[in-house]
Design a protein around this nucleic acid. Sequence first.
DNA 1: GGCCGATGAGTACATATGTACGCATCGCGG
DNA 2: CCGCGATGCGTACATATGTACTCATCGGCC
Lengths: 181, 181
Amino acid sequence: MPPSPRRHDPDRRARIVRAALDVIAEHGVAGTTHRRIAAAADVPLGSMTYHFAGIDEVLTEAFTLLADTVAGRFTDRLSAASTLDDACEAVVDLVVDESWATPRTLLLSYELYAFAGRNPALRSVMQAWMGKSRAALGQHFPADTARALDAMIEGLTLHRSVDARPADRDEVRAIVRRLAR
Amino acid sequence: MPPSPRRHDPDRRARIVRAALDVIAEHGVAGTTHRRIAAAADVPLGSMTYHFAGIDEVLTEAFTLLADTVAGRFTDRLSAASTLDDACEAVVDLVVDESWATPRTLLLSYELYAFAGRNPALRSVMQAWMGKSRAALGQHFPADTARALDAMIEGLTLHRSVDARPADRDEVRAIVRRLAR
DNA sequence: GGCCGATGAGTACATATGTACGCATCGCGG
DNA sequence: CCGCGATGCGTACATATGTACTCATCGGCC
């Protein structure tokens, strides 16, 4: 059979990293292998070892991408608010809106939390992420409130993903307002 | 060499499950293998397949044990409170006291969250866990406050485990009081 | 006290996995 | 236009892993 044609493929590295996130979301870190990532990115197995020193490097970069992406969306949503009420509503959105807190992102976050527990580099990434979130909240709220809201968003999001009857928008808003004033 | 003596060892199964938690804490679900668990439990490899249908069964039982244990401690601590102020202080303890929120337990929780995302049986376990927590809080607080506090505990605990300068006891108490009244 | 089924121990084996390596091919700088 | 180094491709290989299987041995029940 004819050899498969060589492809010109800049940003292959970046595509592999994105594909890694897909694989992690579907199979967990436990089920993430060079071969699965390669298949998801549509590259031959050899590309994995050519572009990355080991599977840990792939995972680390993937999770870093995740943190940056999510932190960016978080900041964008909050920056769009101008009044305090707007800001509260933005926080509510960040918790209940399906477009922000997708099951995929949540699952990936849990994988990240677990992975970061054994990977110092990712601890820094998570700290940076948390710092960005705080800063975004700090645009509208005093520091102690920002801290409380940040934790509350985390907890509510997590619990909503487990709860058989998750808190609805009104309930979340009531909680946010209790913290915000 | 003489064959190793056969041991009389009831509750070997339970010991394997406990050992599995140790292995998960140390290596993550990704690094958890039959052999490592067997070594941690000090049993031969054959015991794994004798007592469990597969590694998923071991993981599922281990995480179930984790949830039950943590939920129990949570309930105990809250049940010990009699006044509302006591209850608030109990909540603060659950967040900041090293004896409750140990790094090990936190790490295991994250592993559980990630694992449960792909394991329906464990989703039920987590829902039961959350139900117990809510009920324990419900002894002292109205339902909506209990829900908020439960999420807040989750978020604060998680963030404290990441934060370079975690919120101190006074700060946590202030947040709890904002929610509780 | 004796038997037999439940439990323990050791090992084998097919497969999955991480990683290395050699060769092919294309883009780019001169 | 040409060469060469970066990039892509296929495959090999040692190892780790899940699981099955056989044999040994103990303990509870009659």
